[in-house]
């Protein structure tokens, strides 16, 4: 009976999740072409050829470097800011509702919409450069080779932060108030009790936030596509998923694209494994 009720869901999972996943891995080991529906052509097994093509492509290697650059900026910034803001929000007495809503607004609003405002704010004559005056980078942020990826990292941090603040907030509400009270009785400063009580108490949430931030970051597409006009300037902000789209769908090489995808998953698994070792240490 239970099986019957769960069956529609299970069938769907198999059709739009398990099967495509398997097909993706299969394609990465074969020579695969797009064909019209129903036409059957040979798709010979080519072993690791697709992987060799991908790994020897300097564009692909550059895109992985860009994502690493993104993660180095985005993940620490996300963890620190969301934990600080969640702690402050947890102890705030006034305007909690208003504050919670304002932090969540960027997360709710469509990325497509928010990207356009950022372009408006960060282009050469935009309000950010007007404020910075002579300190503004030239060329402007999103068309500057050195600043394109950091700008994207900053944008994504801002966009996602509300969600991560909520995760920390939920974790903080399970921290016994007595712990902080005891620390404050013993004369601990706010900073000391934050380090000795809050950080250890929310460690599981920190692990989760790091994990989710890495997964989101590794799958950047909309931002390099729209914010920097297709991985620009001069390919300085391409990402693996952007190349996956270019190769797989624009240029009709789904086998190459699948190999990039598999490499990306393996990379993400490795990075999350290492990050778990770090966040769960001591």
């Amino acid at each position: 009976m239970g099986l019957l009720l769960a069956a529609p869901y299970a069938i769907f999972v198999a059709a739009v999740f398990v099967y495509p996943l398997g097909l993706g891995v299969w394609m990465s080991f074969h020579d695969f072409y797009f064909t019209a529906p129903g036409v059957d052509v040979a798709k010979p097994f080519v072993g690791l050829d697709n992987y060799a093509t991908v790994l020897s492509d300097p564009d692909v290697r550059a895109s992985f470097v860009h994502v690493a650059e993104f993660l180095v900026i985005n993940v620490p910034l996300t963890v620190i800011l969301s934990l600080l803001l969640a702690t402050a929000l947890n102890s705030a007495i006034h305007w909690r509702g208003f504050l919670r809503v304002s932090y969540y607004v960027p997360y709710i609003a469509a990325s497509v919409a928010m990207v356009t405002v950022w372009m408006f704010m960060f282009n050469s004559g935009g309000i950010v450069n007007q404020i910075l005056g002579p300190l503004a980078p030239d060329p402007a942020w999103l068309v500057n080779k050195a600043w394109a990826m950091p700008s994207i990292a900053l944008y994504v941090t801002w966009k996602q932060l509300g969600f991560f603040i909520l995760l920390f907030l939920a974790a903080l509400q399970n921290v016994p108030k007595e712990l902080n009270e005891a620390a404050s009785m013993d004369g601990a400063t706010r900073w000391q009790s934050f380090r000795a009580v809050t950080i250890p108490a929310v460690r599981p949430a920190t692990t989760l936030v790091v994990l989710l931030a890495i997964i989101t970051g590794a799958n950047l597409f909309t931002e390099p596509y729209l914010l920097t006009g297709g991985g620009g300037p001069n390919g300085a902000s391409t990402t693996p998923v952007f190349l996956l789209y270019q190769q797989g769908i624009q240029q009709g090489n789904p086998d190459i694209a699948s190999a990039i995808g598999v490499l990306l998953v393996v990379g993400v698994l490795l990075v999350t494994y290492v990050s778990r070792k770090i966040t769960e240490r001591d």
Partner: peptide
């Protein structure tokens, strides 16, 4: 598992 990974196989299918 993020959606982007399934993107190409789903597109093919």
């Amino acid at each position: 598992v993020p959606f982007q990974l399934l993107m190409v196989p789903l597109y093919v299918l």
